[in-house]
């Protein structure tokens, strides 16, 4: 028998980047796979351009929050957040960051960087950096070993969630899939 899936992810950025949307896609992917899911997010004033942080847990957890040094992975939509949010990461966890960051900030943790903002401009969808980062994460953290926190879901799972969400809105669906793939192929 395989071990039951227990995964904890931190997703962070600033207000307006679509952090909650990415969290939601991952959560819906978990539900589709029949896994219990728990997420926690920031609302209200903190959302107005301030730092936004999502905690995401799949598996048999009772608390909505992740403690320091417990996260398997880190998805950072604004690289500057690495400096603080790297503290959530396990010693062998993985990190994906949008944009360049100061090398010192990320000291001790290996970070996969992607320039999702430029890529989003290139594909003509400047708001889609969040999906590009998610696609990139699916590629990078989908290929590692289970022990190193292999992402619990795949590109196929997320695509199917997007199809469910935007079933009737072909234009939105295509734009979203395009952004997701742009990140995945990078």
């Amino acid at each position: 028998m395989t071990e039951p899936i227990m995964q904890q992810l931190i997703i962070s950025g600033v207000g307006g980047q679509g952090i909650l949307f990415v969290t939601r896609l991952l959560a819906e992917a978990a539900i589709k796979k029949g896994l219990p899911v728990f997420t926690s997010e920031t609302h209200g004033m903190a959302q107005r351009g301030g730092t936004v942080l999502s905690h995401f847990k799949v598996g048999d957890f009772s608390s909505p929050l992740i403690r320091p040094k417990q996260a398997d992975g880190l998805l950072v939509l604004k690289a500057e957040n690495i400096a603080v949010h790297k503290n959530f990461l396990k010693s062998n966890g993985w990190a994906i960051a949008n944009g360049e960051h100061d090398g010192k900030q990320a000291a001790e943790i290996p970070v996969h960087n992607i320039d999702a903002d430029s890529l989003a401009q290139e594909i003509g969808n400047p708001q889609a950096a969040n999906l590009i980062v998610l696609g990139f994460a699916l590629a990078k953290a989908g290929k590692i070993k289970a022990k190193q926190g292999k992402l619990f879901c795949t590109m196929t799972d997320i695509k199917s969630v997007l199809r469910n969400r935007f079933g009737k809105n072909k234009k939105m669906l295509e734009a979203s899939l395009k952004a997701l793939e742009a990140g995945y192929e990078t």
């Binding site: 600033v14 903190a46 959302q47 351009g49 301030g50 040094k69 603080v84 959530f88």
Partner: peptide
């Protein structure tokens, strides 16, 4: 237990859009 905390770094302050 290990004493662990996420340092308070303020992050970005909220601002009018």
């Amino acid at each position: 237990t290990k004493k662990l905390a996420i340092p308070f770094a303020g992050g970005r302050r909220p601002t009018l859009c």
